[in-house]
Design a protein around this nucleic acid. Structure first.
Lengths: 183, 183
DNA sequence: TTTGGCATGTAAGCCGTTACATGATTTA
DNA sequence: TAAATCATGTAACGGCTTACATGCCAAA
């Protein structure tokens, strides 16, 4: 059984707000949700088909231009029932994070190891980049105060992601300083 | 290809410090590393076998009691080479977190929804429990100052995990307060 | 003597990634 | 008109979880 198929419920949740095509869902993951959930299109399309077979969603086709077909899905009554059951359910157990940086640090097993500094610098650089990107995005989307109240969910995710990066960076810088002192 | 087989390198890193049996590795994941890496024993044992077939590790058997056999693995020269190559390599791209709580919150799409408060309370409760557990563990292991200098890696992981839980809890409490005000 | 922990495996199957594949539309 | 983006799929495979399975040892 492996993990619960949570993607299914997330798709239901998205379709519960508006009709979407597979491509739209993919875009949402890339541009809005990706920091807390992500699926590739190669997982999305087959899932949509299965969900339609199961009667959780239905589809209609619209033309883009003259030939290109876009398949919009809408949630059904059954889908809504299943969605609200999931919403009512208690959360699944926390899955353990898998953090390659921390494991490397753990395995070096000493603050003196010559690789430690480089490891920190690499981790700092990648989080710095991400942090900058997220900040730019926030400016773009929510700097205008009239937008503050709208997009509750989107803002919630983006701000959480920004905070997470900031806290990570702070910790990394603190630890690196400590390490440099002892050497 | 999916993900890189990082478990392999972690096992190598562990065996590079001391000989271990599969069960010992399992125990390490459960008691020491679990917050930043975890694998089930059903993944560990076959992996060890493959690694031995590939000449990265070798094994010897010791008796526990009169009949029970325990298979200790040690790292080979080839294993050490591969380990140090991995250590020198740059980190793999960050994998996106999958966070069911945040997705549910996102999908409720409003601070007013009756489920929001319950959702927060549930998330707070589970992180509170974890936080308490981790704190107890720190006390147990590192309260004695003579232990402070030892176990660099273990302490690093435990303290990181504690900080993460604390920051998460702080955020949850802050947001919950905000939400209650607007209602 | 029973219970819990030690110790090592195998099998089925889902989740997710990577790669393969194709074609239309829009934009620079 | 070329490049980027829109749009939808399939195939192969590895990682990981869950469940099945067995037996020994130590401690209460």
């Amino acid at each position: 059984m492996a993990q619960k198929n949570i993607l299914k419920y997330i798709i239901l949740g998205l379709l519960n707000r508006e009709d979407l095509a597979g491509y739209d869902i993919k875009k949402l993951f890339e541009e809005e949700l990706g920091d807390f959930w992500y699926s590739n299109h190669s997982q999305i399309y087959p899932e949509l088909r299965r969900m339609e077979d199961d009667g959780l969603i239905s589809s209609r086709t619209e033309l883009v231009g003259k030939k290109l077909e876009k398949k919009f899905y809408q949630i059904t009554k059954d889908g809504q029932k299943l969605l609200s059951a999931w919403m009512d359910e208690s959360l699944n157990p926390l899955v353990p994070t898998r953090d390659e940086f921390t494991m490397k640090l753990y395995l070096l097993d000493s603050a003196d190891h010559p690789l430690v500094t480089r490891l920190f610098q690499e981790e700092i650089a990648r989080h710095e980049e991400k942090y900058q990107y997220l900040q730019t995005r926030w400016q773009l989307l929510f700097a205008d105060e009239s937008e503050q109240q709208k997009h509750f969910g989107h803002r919630c995710i983006l701000e959480q992601a920004i905070l997470r990066e900031k806290q990570r960076l702070d910790w990394l810088h603190r630890e690196l300083k400590k390490i440099k002192k002892t050497n």
